[in-house]
Design a protein around this nucleic acid. Structure first.
Length: 614
RNA sequence: GGCUCCGUAGCUCAAUUGGAUAGAGCAUCUGACUACGGAUCAGAAGGUUGCAGGUUCGAAUCCUGCCGGAGUCACCA
């Protein structure tokens, strides 16, 4: 039983014995005592005022006396304005520390026998990954790590959007203008190489469009279609898609290519495979740099026809209804949603059809209890609809579906816009933070004793810690502003700050960790800062549980920062190796080790590594 | 326009899910080791938590109404 439960039970029994009332554990509001007061845990007495028909202060006083008398671990209490602050005994903290300080897996919860799938990244194959993907990937990866630590078996997947008109544009541009070039011949990463052809297509298309706008055909269209007062520029901007579909030569060629792809044309398929394989090589490199991997990749080219069977079955069950034109719909108005099309009148799929089929396939493949989709918040409505449909189809995993929705990443200058060239490329960004970390490390000259490779590894660890922490510390739901200048900061509330606390511990342990730590058992007067850290460490497993339940890695990041901060302060205020007694020294070495373990574990849940020196 | 999310210090973010005097970092200013790593620590300054009501012993948090921002409302993905 945790100390929190022990206290809660004590309170329940105390209320019973003092006032003859029965209460439950969730009626006992408890939290860690705030730093400015003495104590470890605080029980709020206000809620008992009605039951006991006494003033909160009096209740707290009586309850405090009861708890000190009846609960072994509680040693003292004080009452301030209806808050009962409880101090645990030094013996309790000492034995807790003794139990955990060598446990590197502390915070890992026992296996719960459940399996969860986490889908993240899910890029298109026509251009390289950017900052938005990075937030997605870091959220997906850290969430999957946290779920693992909370006892789940985790399957990491992505759905690769490898088909459609976009990749055809890249293919067509390469075919027309590429002259047989390859990433090798161009000396370029595969995903960037293919992305360049996508951009080239857009450029050529714009040129074609501009030229067409001067022709009679276009002039007449503008004259007859332009709404009252709409100027030429606005008209042609709005008309772009129409032009692509009905008039453009390049558009027609791209669409023709898509048809050939769908028809299984050999040359087209072979070109498609070639282009995509270049892209995958590029993606793999980016994933490797970020330190993430997947258990299984789903490709849209395999799944885009899935789901039709499910629609048919649902139609028979009456979940869906068919209109006269043959299109199939679902009425979700009683769930506060809308009518939604699930199959076109020509019998072809829409996006959601595919998602239904893919969910079913995944369940067949892995038999998961839960599925988490890491997708930006622009698709909130889509996932509400999808989950409601899967529920009505009676899918066994329907209650375990979760859309891990996250806000878009903005730049200090505003939104990222590909057309304005403000999109922050993932590879460029990583190179930038590494360069910054390298410059800093060289200037500090702290690790020049290490080999070249070791130095480079440490620099990368620092750089990625800065980048990852900067992004993960923000709650997923919130939109965030990404300032590239701040993301390479290595001081303050940053990943390297947390790493530095860990590195300090390692340095101390190298100098004094070999000795016998058993005198720690005789350490009597714990400092408040020591208890503060122990209290935080004590709460770590519960936080892992909570972070898993709420799919919220930011809480782990903030915890790591708070613990590192507490350690930095302690380290400054108190001597460890030159402590006043052998008991204090041993205890502090244990405590340092415990802090380091929790920091390393906590940061590993975010996909952040700890260097031994920095 | 309907629905959803967001609004906290100049800036970037917290706030133990309704608890105590709303906390950190950055930026600004001032300090700290003849000491275990200064990527550190301490201090100053910075707030009507968008606004107005309501519920409550207690509200940044819950309810209502406004204001501002974002997203979405395709036989697109």
């Amino acid at each position: 039983m945790s100390i929190i439960e022990i206290i809660q039970n004590g309170v329940i029994q105390g209320i019973k014995s003092l006032y003859g009332a029965d209460i439950t554990a969730d009626q006992v509001t408890m939290n860690s005592t705030r730093k400015e007061f003495e104590g470890d845990y605080t029980v709020v007495a206000f809620s008992f005022a009605r039951i006991a028909r006494k003033k909160p202060d009096d209740i707290a006083e009586e309850l405090g006396n009861y708890l000190v008398r009846e609960v072994e671990q509680i040693e003292r209490f004080n009452v301030i304005k209806g808050f009962l602050n409880l101090s645990l005994s030094n013996a309790f903290w000492r034995s807790f520390l003794m139990d955990v300080f060598q446990d590197e897996a502390y915070g890992r919860l026992p296996a719960n026998g459940k399996k969860v799938m986490v889908e993240f990244s899910s890029p298109n194959t026509n251009k390289p990954l950017h900052l938005g993907h990075i937030r997605n990937i870091l959220l997906g990866w850290s969430t999957s790590r946290i779920l693992e630590a909370a006892g789940y078996k985790v399957v990491r997947v992505q759905i690769v959007n490898d088909r459609g008109i976009a990749i055809c544009k890249s293919m067509l541009a390469w075919q027309k203008y590429g002259q047989g070039a390859s990433p090798e011949s161009a000396g370029e990463k595969g995903d960037h190489f293919v992305g360049d052809y996508y951009v080239l297509f857009e450029k050529k298309f714009q040129e074609e469009y501009k030229e067409w706008q001067q022709r009679d055909e276009a002039r007449q269209l503008f004259a007859s279609h332009s709404e009252n007062g709409q100027n030429e520029e606005a008209f042609f901007k709005a008309f772009k898609n129409n032009y692509f579909n009905k008039y453009s030569r390049l558009g027609a060629e791209a669409k023709e290519m898509l048809l050939q792809w769908e028809g299984g044309d050999e040359a087209t398929i072979s070109l498609w495979k070639q282009m995509n394989s270049w892209v995958y090589q590029g993606f793999d490199e980016t994933y490797r740099q970020l330190g993430v991997e997947f258990d299984k990749l789903y490709f849209e080219s395999d799944t885009y026809l899935l789901g039709k069977d499910a629609i048919q079955k649902g139609l028979e069950q009456g979940v869906f209804y068919q209109k006269e034109d043959g299109s199939v719909w679902i009425d979700l108005t009683d769930a506060g949603l809308d009518h939604k099309l699930v199959l076109r009148s020509d019998g072809t799929s829409v996006y959601i059809t595919q998602d239904i089929g893919t969910a079913q396939k995944r369940y067949q493949d892995f038999g998961v209890d839960k599925m988490v989709y890491v997708v930006a918040d622009e698709q909130n409505y889509h996932f509400q609809v999808l989950f409601e449909i899967l529920k009505r189809l009676g899918e066994p995993y329907a209650n375990g579906l979760y859309h891990l929705s996250y806000g878009m990443v903005d730049l200090p200058t505003g939104k990222m816009k590909s057309r304005e060239g403000t999109v922050v490329d993932a590879d460029d960004l990583m190179a930038e933070v590494v360069a910054e970390a390298r410059a800093n490390t060289v200037e500090r000259d702290t690790i020049s004793g290490l080999s070249e490779e070791e130095q480079e590894a440490v620099i990368r660890q620092i750089a990625l810690a800065a980048l990852k922490f900067f992004i993960i510390k923000v709650q997923p739901r919130k939109r965030m502003v990404f300032d590239p200048k701040e993301s390479v900061d290595l001081q303050g509330q940053t990943g390297p700050y947390v790493q530095n606390a860990y590195v300090r511990v390692q340095s101390v342990l190298r100098k004094g960790g070999e000795q016998d730590l058993s005198p720690a058992a005789g350490y009597q007067q714990l400092e408040s800062q020591e208890k503060e850290m122990l209290n935080m460490i004590y709460g770590f497993p519960g936080l892992v549980q909570l972070a898993a339940e709420e799919y919220d890695p930011s809480s782990i990041a903030n915890f790591c920062y708070d613990l590192a901060k507490a350690y930095h302060r302690f380290y400054h205020d108190h001597s460890i190796l030159n402590a006043q007694s052998a008991e204090a020294k041993a205890f502090r070495l244990q405590l340092s080790q415990a802090v380091a373990n929790v920091l390393r574990h906590g940061m590993s849940l975010l996909g952040i590594e700890m260097p031994e020196r920095m």
